[in-house]
Design a binder for these strands. Structure first.
Lengths: 211, 211
DNA sequence: GTCTATAAATGGATAGAC
DNA sequence: GTCTATCCATTTATAGAC
């Protein structure tokens, strides 16, 4: 149908605009990014751009919303649910760290934090879609293993938060403040290993068989 | 002397400008803040402003540098060095949390993170003056107690990072993303208490006498 | 040193031809 | 729907009187 073709054509261009807008906003920040620059990089004109998004603020909001909806924003691999918590924790921690230290995650992290004063609802939305979601996934897993008697975590939510923070410890801050270029694989592994050790010292069960 | 009087007059005005600049930059962000607004709020004119700082970027850099030099940026109370680690840890954690969750710390945190792409050396400077300095203070204390046999932390630096991250866990993120208005005293205490528990489970020494 | 006035550029947003 | 051309506000930064 023609209507359908027009619809998909419009959607495609809309997506193209959002893609370019993401690049420009992430690189320049909200205030410094200009609609002119975005229009130029999309290839069209400013008139067309304003036909798709009524204002700069709305374009920015749409961009952040689409980013929230993306599954990539979760960044958590949680497949192994065997009985031994240690290897599963290591895998969770490592996939979390890989995602959370990626250039893409860091940039959007910086941008939303910078602008959540101007757009409070975006900060909230991002927290729910990202950190909060990850905490809940890990908390459910911890609760499950607690029921099975492989962990003793009376407050799974808190334990999950603590574990993820332990995995980040140091590395995320350094990257966020652009001090280190990027941590090595060995550094990441060391962080996760130590996090698992600390976590299990507090929430593990005495298991003489595995020692 | 006249020269001295002129010098202090200049320095005083310079300080006044920096004070206003801090307010404006923290509230608006770098790009959105305008030299006109700063000049107006200082009381003088733009001409005068440019007499003290050659450009917007240099004013911003001077502002951040003065903030780095401020002792307030440390935010760590470390007085009790008795033999029992638990109460000392609680005090360290609580003073750290009070500072790091304060409106002032959060705002400058957001600002520097937002602009460290444009001003990489500022991110570095702030990391050294803030997080890094706190970690070192705590690490030295942990090393001391390890020597005394009250803790078993083979890597004091890592242990210090982990402890501070544990204290923040959850609260700092939520505040940074402007989700929660401000945590209650009870919430802060609960976070620190749990952090101390986890930390001592991993790095404490078996001490039957205190059980 | 400090002011007023202004230059020069760029920003978001819109009008109107096609 | 898309383009060109433009409006109007605002920006950084400077010139020149005092």
């Amino acid at each position: 149908m023609d209507a359908q073709a027009v619809r998909t054509g419009r959607d495609e261009r809309r997506r193209a605009i959002l893609e370019v807008a993401r690049d420009v906003f992430l690189r320049e920040g909200y205030a410094a990014a200009s609609m002119s620059a975005i229009a130029a990089r999309v290839g069209g004109s400013k008139g067309t751009l304003y036909n798709y998004f009524a204002s700069k603020a709305q374009l920015f909001a749409a961009l952040v919303a689409s980013e929230c909806a993306s599954d990539a924003w979760c960044g958590l691999m949680l497949q192994s649910d065997g009985d031994d918590p240690a290897p599963a924790l290591r895998q969770i921690g490592r996939s979390f760290l890989d995602f959370t230290l990626s250039e893409r995650a860091l940039k959007i992290h910086r941008l939303v934090i910078a602008e959540c004063g101007r757009f409070p609802e975006l900060g909230q939305a991002f927290y729910e879609a990202g950190p909060r979601r990850r905490i809940e996934i890990v908390a459910r897993w911890i609760a499950l293993l607690s029921e099975r008697g492989r962990l003793t975590a009376p407050d799974p939510d808190r334990a999950a938060m603590q574990f993820l923070e332990l995995c980040k410890s140091g590395l995320h801050q350094k990257r966020l403040w652009s001090v280190d270029p990027e941590p090595s694989e060995a550094e990441k592994d060391a962080n996760v290993d130590s996090a698992v050790r600390v976590f299990l010292a507090a929430y593990g069960v005495a298991d003489p068989g595995s020692r």
